[in-house]
């Protein structure tokens, strides 16, 4: 695998109000079930068993929060490049991600600051599907200087 040529965003490139590129992700059954069992080792039935999900009041199996968190992390470093270091992610879930939907990520820089010689930006993000906001939250990323 050679993806080392990924563009690196520097702290100097970014101002408050800067918008991250939009990213669409198809929510397949493989992503929901594989996200739960393979990627995050979460065997809660609502993420892989249709009838269990229905009994729990959902329409179908739905994505677990650890997968959502992982997809947000990927979204952030896809943008920043590997020299961007995620310091924190805080997310809140609203509507579920069901198979067959698409989630659209967007984000913008809401703060730019320096602490302990680290050059930080705070990004506000949302992951939206056809039902509304699946996830919304904030993340802090350390970026290199130009």
């Amino acid at each position: 695998m050679n993806v080392s040529s990924q563009a690196a965003i520097t702290w100097d490139d970014v101002e408050v109000g800067y918008e991250l590129p939009i990213l669409d992700r198809k929510i397949t059954a493989a992503l929901v079930v594989g996200g739960a069992i393979s990627a995050t080792h979460d065997y809660a039935e609502v993420h892989h068993d249709y009838h269990a999900a229905r009994k729990a009041g959902a329409d179908n199996v739905f994505m677990n929060i650890l997968t959502t968190n992982g997809l947000i992390g990927k979204y952030l470093t896809d943008w920043s490049g590997p020299t961007g270091e995620i310091k924190s992610i805080v997310l809140r879930l609203a509507v579920p991600n069901y198979p067959g939907d698409t989630m659209t990520f967007c984000g913008s820089v809401i703060q730019k600051y320096q602490v302990d010689e680290q050059n930080l930006v705070e990004v506000e993000f949302t992951g939206r599907n056809s039902l509304g906001n699946h996830a919304a939250g904030k993340a802090v990323i350390a970026l290199p200087r130009r």
């Binding site: 695998m1 050679n2 993806v3 080392s4 990924q6 992700r25 992503l31 594989g34 996200g35 393979s38 990627a39 650890l66 997968t67 968190n69 992982g70 997809l71 947000i72 992390g73 990927k74 470093t77 896809d78 590997p82 995620i86 992610i89």
Partner: peptide
């Protein structure tokens, strides 16, 4: 594989070795 995350710090040994971490790191998430 599931996330479709291509961050080379996670899987590209050559890149990761030259990085500030000196080797592969797991996704913090």
């Amino acid at each position: 594989e599931v996330m479709e995350d291509t961050n080379p710090l996670y899987q590209d040994e050559e890149y990761a070795q030259k990085s500030q971490f000196g080797g592969i790191i797991a996704p913090p998430m």
